[in-house]
Design a protein around this nucleic acid. Structure first.
Lengths: 229, 229
DNA sequence: CGCCGGATTGATCAGTTTCAAGGCATGTGG
DNA sequence: CCACATGCCTTGAAACTGATCAATCCGGCG
């Protein structure tokens, strides 16, 4: 009955657990027909959904990049996550979104109706469990990020960011950042100037090199890991 | 089949939705026999579970207070949540805990075996949904807290803390804080001195009054709300 | 009553932000 | 094809917020 590839990590009892571990479901399960309903395109800086808006769809990034954030009255912004190709975002248990989502660059997403997903989850325990796991993974990242925001220095934050991006989107030894220094700052709880200065400092120390401001080669991951506290 | 009182907010299809809204399940459902398996007592500062430890139980605070936190190598601490009477904590979707839990003061908790909960969730969609919702509620709080940690000033953080505690544990117009200034600082990403100074400043402005350091009366919630950005 | 841990308060310091100027890359139109 | 405009990034100097270091102070408890 289950189409999940997460059978061995989901805690629910399961009749036929698979052998392949997968901590974070990265793709809509291809074997569940009708799940991925459509694709949509968003231009750079286009809104995908707003905070408090009813959550009608769940999204998966095909190409491009998305930021989700919260704002204060006076415009201060906290980006809670960057969503890169393969990532699913926009899934909430409640009625409404709790962050705003915007395309960072031109972005293609796959969408599925939340209603459909819930209908499946209502009858298929594996799917219900997938939903829970996806939310739990987001929570885990949020908890790590709270530690960063509350207790890490600027250098430690930038090091953590570089290692995260290296892990998530490096190709051919190079990290091609889709986001601006301001986006990075708003993710790390810093100003764009501090981000820039810290990157320059890492460059001076030969920990990284640039090919234009948004293409970074990590030359010494060990030192980044060491400074990640 | 469902014993949940959340029928109308959980998004799963349900045959007989109830009328009472309840955004956050505060109690183990009393009508599910055998759920609450036992009670346990923890003394002030006693460990309940550690980060990375296998998650065997889920907990509900009966009396007392609990802090959950992460540490950096050098001892810097970020408290991600305070758990007060009625709150459930220790629920994770994965195998292991991702934060450490400690009793702040002498604390009684109700525990249930995670295995039991999962067994129920495996057959009862409403329970599966409750688990998802509880994790989603934690995520929502984490997202709000990231905004606080990344972008709010010390005064705004303390104001937010006071309003939160006022909402969660005020009795007879008084907030009886179970935690120290250091705990508050580690929750808000500040030092204990900054917390103390900010509280003193609010006292000078007649926004609050003290009955001993840990008993606070809010005299002007409106101004606290206003400074909460 | 005195002790002790926690809280307050003060003075100084450091890290990050703010304000400001200039540089570099990209893209567009002459 | 080049000049220029634009937006993003870098860099510098000064200001500021919150941290650190260091005394007390207070209150609860033995």
């Amino acid at each position: 009955m289950s189409h999940s590839n997460l059978a061995n990590v989901v805690p629910f009892p399961r009749s036929a657990p698979s052998a392949a571990p997968c901590v974070c479901p990265k793709l809509f399960r291809a074997s569940a027909p009708g799940i991925a309903e459509a694709e949509r395109f968003y231009s750079r800086d286009e809104d995908i959904y707003g905070e408090c808006e009813p959550a009608e769809y769940v999204y998966q990034v095909i190409s491009g990049a998305v930021r989700t954030y919260k704002l204060l009255n006076d415009g201060r912004r906290q980006i809670d996550a960057f969503h890169l190709p393969g990532d699913i975002f926009g899934l909430v248990a409640g009625y409404a979104h709790r962050v705003t989502a915007e395309a960072i660059i031109d972005t293609n997403v796959r969408i599925m109706r939340r209603r459909t997903l819930e209908a499946i989850a209502g009858t298929d325990v594996a799917t219900a469990c997938d939903l829970w796991r996806m939310t739990a993974d987001e929570l885990r990242r949020a908890q790590d990020h709270m530690l960063l925001l509350g207790r890490k220095s600027a250098a430690e934050r930038v090091a953590a960011f570089l290692l995260e991006m290296d892990r998530r989107l490096s190709t051919a030894g190079m990290v091609a950042l889709p986001m601006s220094r301001r986006d990075i700052g708003d993710y790390l709880g810093l100003t764009l100037e501090t981000v820039s200065r810290t990157l320059s400092h890492l460059h001076d120390q030969a920990i990284l090199s640039f090919s234009g401001a948004r293409h970074i080669v990590l030359l010494d991951r060990a030192r980044l890991v060491a400074m990640n506290a």
